[in-house]
Design a protein around this nucleic acid. Structure first.
Lengths: 352, 352
DNA sequence: CGTTGAATTGATAACGTTACCAACACCGTG
DNA sequence: CACGGTGTTGGTAACGTTATCAATTCAACG
């Protein structure tokens, strides 16, 4: 039977250009002269639909510019939302932007999309975003956690939604985690500087409440102890959240009575500040000795730094990818209760 | 009346820890001994609910770790999804990461969240992501469009969802757009180099199909023409998508018979490549003259570039914010059919 | 003490979608 | 020509939520 004659009905009301009211399967069905079920079947691949009819419905769908309501679909039993929540502290930091990119690459390959939230290192905001994302039925979460208590990551708080911690951990959280080998990276860097003869090495870090800061300090300390040296507390600075703070800290350190001959910068934002301080200092007083610099995390232009620079390098995009793969493994794995996995990605040292 | 005695029911089945099956209002209602409606009322502010009962329900909600299903809520008439779609070409580019940050700042203040998609400069992928986001009921879209036809941005294709083009336009699209003043920025930069005496100025751009590339070339051309000079096609290079390509192009230009004495780099990725080429060249042969360099877009370390550098600066975060504000104006404005608005953000020139 | 009104609570239906089942048409075969 | 089978189509109900309305309680008042 030929498709029913379909007058586009002069006064179809809310249908038509679909300006305000949403177009639904029913609208398509009415225009195409079929039942909503047939439209649904066509949109799901068109199995068991007469080819002529299928094409007719497809034409109507294309003409009207109809898009299935995924929210309604995901409501149906067995269906998933196709959403993954990604929480990072600051998307303007290229490091975390790289993590997001890695996550997106992997989850997009499964047709899923990412909801992105920025916590700004604020635990309350993080909690709020977690709750919001859960309400939006994310299938899983990749989170760079701000420091603090593990309580907000308890499985019952997360409604059983799989979680992967990326880059940082939180003590006491039973969840998959993908870190980089902070301890070993810092240890190797500091060991090398010690081998070069440096004895006064400064440590510049962000918040001690953040696991990366603690772990990198542990590696720093471990290297010193291996050489029979103690950590000089005057050379350990924490709380450097912005490049400006680390620039100031570098100036202060170098202006002190017994300045360090080498500096370990615990992340990329800190490195920026240190480099800026060193460049300014060198511009003002070229005769001053430039301290040896070792930086955790690479960045654009590391190869063109104004002073010699070594970097503990690793790929944030890969970190994002691995995190996403672990998440997908949980989503696709049938049996939930597998023990949490911890992955530590290797670092490699680059001299510029 | 005191709240009904609530045995947590030893064998409540799917309820309890909410591991697999989703917890719903009905579950909460059952455990709390009230009707789903009462739970709903409590969750919506608790108006017209006896205080004791409200607290009881709130306690159950907190204990079970229940989160309202936003997808189901948004299904109800009058409700909105609270989602904004953001499409950029590459989140690893700090420039676009900044745009995303700006959008997120503004929409998060209204309780909305962002779906982020990366188009990778691929028109097909962009189309697919647009369609997907519409299916997920985004209320609005902020898009950095890849070049190409305007057809995919027609209102009927977008189901009437408001669209703001950010950073780039597409000819023939009737939608709000937030650009930066590409033409004037390029014109001022090139004019300054001409005033300094340079006559052979190279233009390095990305894809000519992208509006920023065309607009910046227009400014470049305009400045030359104002000085009575014609554009030397040998000094105009397009198609530089990655830093490596622009590095190579710079080498080639400088190795040519009549090399440019100045270079205009049309975006941040290109600048990176040019700087790298100049640094390498200077390291190999310090005696060679270093060309004058003017870069569109700023970046970390622009102030520490290994060669003198001027920058046409502007704030991608602000671009994101303005885009988001225009979008929100459409969402909250009652009357849809206002004519599209075009905003051009100013640039300022910085010398390093 | 009966009545009015306000405050509280619950039942129903609908948002858009599709799994399931029933109904139907059509074909070939006995 | 009756029958069974295959393939196509539609009706119904349910996913989780809440606006609407109806039912109920209770206090206050005449």
């Amino acid at each position: 039977m030929a498709p029913a004659a379909d007058h586009p009905s002069p006064a179809t009301g809310p249908t038509g250009t679909g300006r305000g009211a949403a177009v639904t399967v029913k609208d398509i069905a009415r225009v195409a002269g079929v039942s909503p079920m047939t439209v649904s079947r066509v949109l799901s691949g068109g199995k068991n639909v007469r080819p002529a009819l299928r094409e007719h419905v497809e034409r109507v769908v294309a003409e009207v510019g109809y898009h299935r309501n995924e929210n309604a679909r995901s409501l149906r039993p067995g269906h998933r939302s196709g959403l993954v929540g990604v929480l990072i502290t600051n998307i303007a930091n290229p490091y975390y932007a790289g993590v997001v990119q890695g996550v997106e690459q992997v989850v997009a390959a499964t047709g899923r999309r990412i909801l992105v939230g920025t916590t700004n290192e604020d635990a309350d905001l993080e909690r709020q975003l977690l709750s919001d994302f859960l309400g939006r039925q994310v299938e899983g979460l990749v989170v760079v956690p701000v420091g603090g208590d593990a309580e907000r990551f308890l499985p019952e708080r997360l409604a059983g939604v799989p979680l992967v911690l990326a880059s940082r951990t939180v003590d006491g959280v039973r969840a998959d985690a993908v870190l980089i080998d902070d301890v070993e990276g810092a240890r190797r860097a500091v060991t090398q500087m010690l081998d070069e003869g440096h004895r006064r090495i400064a440590f510049l870090g962000n918040k001690e409440s953040v696991s990366t800061g603690r772990r990198r300090l542990a590696g720093f300390r471990s290297a010193l102890e291996q050489h029979g040296l103690a950590v000089d507390d005057d050379l350990v600075v924490f709380g450097l959240q912005e490049a400006a703070a680390s620039e100031a800290a570098t100036h202060d350190l170098l202006a002190a009575a017994d300045p360090p001959t080498a500096i370990f910068a615990a992340n990329n934002r800190i490195s920026v500040g240190v480099l800026r301080a060193l460049a300014r200092r060198a511009a003002r007083t070229p005769s001053l000795a430039v301290p040896r610099l070792f930086a955790f995390d690479s960045f654009d232009f590391a190869d063109m730094a104004p002073v010699p620079l070594s970097v503990i390098d690793h790929d944030p995009v890969e970190l994002g990818r691995v995190s996403a793969r672990m998440l997908l493994a949980r989503l696709e794995g049938s049996t939930e209760p597998a023990p949490p996995r911890l992955v530590e990605l290797p670092v490699h040292i680059v001299h510029h």
